[in-house]
Simulated scan of single mutants.
Amino acid sequence: MIEVEHLSKVYGSTTAIQNVDFSVQKGEILGFLGPNGAGKTTTMRILAGYIPATTGTVRVAGFDVHEQSLAVRKRIGYLPENPPLYGDMTVASFLNFVASIKGVKPGDRRQRVIWAMERCQLTEKRKVLIRKLSKGFKQRVGIAQAIVHDPAVIILDEPTVGLDPKQIIEVRNLIKSLAEDHTIILSTHILPEVSMTCDRVTIINQGRVVATNTPDNLLAELKGNLSYQLEVAGAEGMAIAHCLQSLPGVEEVQTKTHPQQQERQQILVRSNQLEELGQQLAQAIVTQGWDLYEMQRLRPTLEDVFLNLITSEAVDEEMAVELPEEKPENPEESNKNSENAQ
């Protein structure tokens, strides 16, 4: 439904996004995830036809965003990070106005407005001026204006930014319900939004896509990075760390004294292999005659995946320093230099 190929956008000497590639299938929710300034909003604006790309192509439902802009705009609903609302209009009149400029036939507008208000739970607010609405309801109006013409594709840029926890849950449920009949791409830097809402994730950092996969598959890539949290008594932290560090597969051991139980040590063990280490850890502690009060396996989260990818990118850039090219030494020149040195 959405195909993005080799997309780049340059502002003067600044490259906002570079060679971005991803796709979204029909009926899918794609999370476009990245830190602030990664290029998410720039990409969303290009997809919506709001700004042109410098290079690359974007197709929505088979139509090129640049060459067939009007055809694309009929098939998308776009919610910018700051919803384009008219505060002096009521919810119903504003949605009717949006429906008219988006080409909804006069005979269908009333029903489309009613449908959009019902989907976004705005029916009770239909006669309220938009400027009098709370942030959460304004966001709902923004989503309603994006869907009032029943587009095939919905593009949401940071749809839950600035909302309280209750409002976030409500908007999240709304987005999931819309996926039944629409293809959705939403940009965010809030990790729980992705894991709880999206079918697939595209992670962008510094204008480049660094990963695209399902949340489960991204987590599976870190499954070798298992960690264990233990609570042990009967020895000093250094002795426990030395014992556990000697076990095969243990990469790192961190210890600290329990804040309430001074005789106990809190241990964090990081593994560098896929096999479970719980049994070996417990056996090593019991064999030493120490008391094991607690052991918990810590599974990687989407946050771990995100930080791992972002950190890897930063390290790669630091290492990618251009060194002067070494020219192969000419034997004759080498001999002359040696003679001069003598």
Rank of each mutant, 00 (worst) to 15 (best):
A179K: 10
M1F: 02
K105H: 12
G37M: 10
V91F: 01
H258I: 06
L122A: 05
E81Y: 00
V20A: 07
M295E: 01
I101Y: 06
L218E: 12
K74D: 05
T14K: 14
Q273M: 05
A71D: 12
A92F: 06
A38Y: 05
T90H: 02
D64Q: 01
T123H: 03
T301C: 02
I46L: 02
V286H: 13
I155Y: 14
A211R: 10
I101M: 02
S227I: 06
G103C: 10
Q266E: 13
F94E: 08
Q18T: 05
Q280K: 13
P80W: 07
S23T: 15
Q261W: 10
Q206M: 08
Q18E: 15
V315F: 04
E124I: 11
L247E: 07
K102Q: 13
L309R: 00
S338G: 03
N308E: 08
R264P: 00
S334M: 10
Q229Y: 10
E5Q: 12
L307D: 03
I203W: 01
E67G: 00
V24D: 06
V10L: 00
I169Q: 11
R270W: 06
A211G: 09
E236S: 09
L178F: 09
I2N: 08
R126Q: 15
A48D: 09
I143V: 15
L309Q: 07
A233T: 14
H149D: 14
V161F: 06
E158F: 06
C198R: 04
Q254N: 09
V4D: 07
K166H: 05
T15K: 12
Q111R: 12
A341T: 06
Q288K: 15
D164R: 10
M238D: 15
L156M: 08
H258R: 06
G31M: 06
V232I: 15
I175P: 08
A282D: 03
F306L: 05
N173S: 13
A92W: 14
I169N: 11
M238R: 12
A152I: 13
L186Y: 05
E339A: 11
T212I: 08
S93E: 15
G39M: 01
A38N: 11
R200K: 12
S187P: 14
E333S: 04
L174F: 04
V161R: 01
S69I: 03
E251H: 12
E231Q: 13
L298Y: 01
G62H: 08
E303D: 14
Q111H: 11
F97Q: 12
T42K: 07
F22Y: 11
G39E: 02
Y228F: 12
I190M: 07
K40P: 14
M196D: 13
A53C: 08
E313M: 02
